[in-house]
């Protein structure tokens, strides 16, 4: 096992642990008040529960495919940006889709690496098809991402709205992503054995066997990718998975509070916590709970006295 093995596994481990930690922190937050926002796609199209008389006595149809119909074009094609920020769409789409292609390509490389390890001939037939596909996807993904990164950098620097809200990290992130795209593009274009070397790298990592010597551009690519793994979980770019929460746990979270239900149990847990808000009309002393503060008329009298 080489130092590179260690670095790769450490980077991936940091990425996974930090992402999971963030997801757990968000998921473990207490159940919040409802804050849904239309459209709520799991409701029957055009049919909010509140449009039905005595809806609580009826079984309401749910359309889970509706959620997929929203999320797939949103994630893959950035539909929201297309509809609401058209001039940013192509730069952003190129930046994101380039990444999707490279992530997808990792799967293909994994397949060909396993095939090679299993002794399957990869120079002909399906293996050859896969080899060509990996190279093509790397070139298209790297090229698209490079264009996206450059256009996004220009937008960030020159667009009045974007530049006013930009932080140094926005530029760093774009340069960093750009470096990933440019290096993979150059590697794929300049190295005739690009796929062979890439699959050998994967095979070496999978088996803990020696990794073949890589070209400088390949080494730079690996380095920027590993740095990205370590850095990403600590940035707003984690929206790639926290989006699940903003949509499913907030916008589309419409679970009603029914007697004896899970929501009811969570409410009891929430409202029995002590409150420390300092404004006099709240009447909190650090011991009184939400229940103490909102029930009865005691607080109303306090308002009067105040």
């Amino acid at each position: 096992m080489s130092a590179l093995h260690g670095l790769v596994y450490l980077s991936v481990l940091i990425f996974l642990v930090a992402c999971v930690a963030r997801a757990v922190r968000i998921a473990r937050a207490p159940m919040h008040l409802r804050w849904e926002l239309q459209p709520v796609p799991h409701e029957k199209p055009g049919k909010s529960m509140y449009e039905t008389v005595d809806y609580w006595e009826k079984t309401l149809e749910k359309n889970h495919f509706g959620e997929l119909a929203v999320m797939i074009p949103e994630i893959l094609l950035l539909r929201g940006v297309w509809e609401h920020n058209r001039s940013l769409w192509f730069p952003s789409f190129a930046l994101h889709f380039g990444l999707y292609l490279l992530i997808g390509n990792m799967g293909l490389v994994l397949v060909i690496a396993i095939m090679a390890l299993s002794g399957v001939e990869v120079g002909t037939g399906f293996g050859l098809l896969l080899t060509n596909a990996i190279k093509a996807v790397a070139i298209v993904g790297g090229g698209l991402g490079t264009i996206g990164s450059i256009l996004m950098l220009i937008k960030r620097a020159t667009d009045d709205g974007l530049s006013k809200f930009a932080t140094p990290s926005h530029f760093f992130n774009l340069v960093h992503l750009g470096a990933i795209y440019v290096t993979v593009l150059l590697w794929a274009l300049l190295d005739p054995s690009f796929v062979v070397n890439l699959s050998a790298l994967y095979a070496g990592l999978l088996t803990l066997n020696a990794i073949p010597a890589l070209s400088t551009i390949a080494m730079v690519h690996v380095a920027v990718v590993l740095l990205f793994f370590v850095y990403l979980p600590f940035t707003h770019m984690t929206h790639f998975f926290t989006k699940y929460f903003t949509y499913h746990s907030v916008r589309w979270e419409t679970t009603p509070n029914v007697k004896g239900g899970k929501v009811e149990k969570n409410i009891i847990k929430n409202v029995t916590q002590p409150v420390t808000w300092a404004a006099p009309h709240i009447g909190a002393d650090g011991k009184k709970t939400w229940v103490d503060l909102v029930s009865g008329t005691g607080e109303v009298k306090k308002e009067k006295e105040a």
């Binding site: 968000i26 937050a29 929430n270």
Partner: peptide, 28 residues
Amino acid sequence: TKENNWTFLQPLTLSMEHCARCQTCVDN
């Protein structure tokens, strides 16, 4: 804090930490 703002802690934290500052929302 969960004691004082259990009511909106999760959605608020999500909105605080994940904005890309892309300004896609502003024209609306």
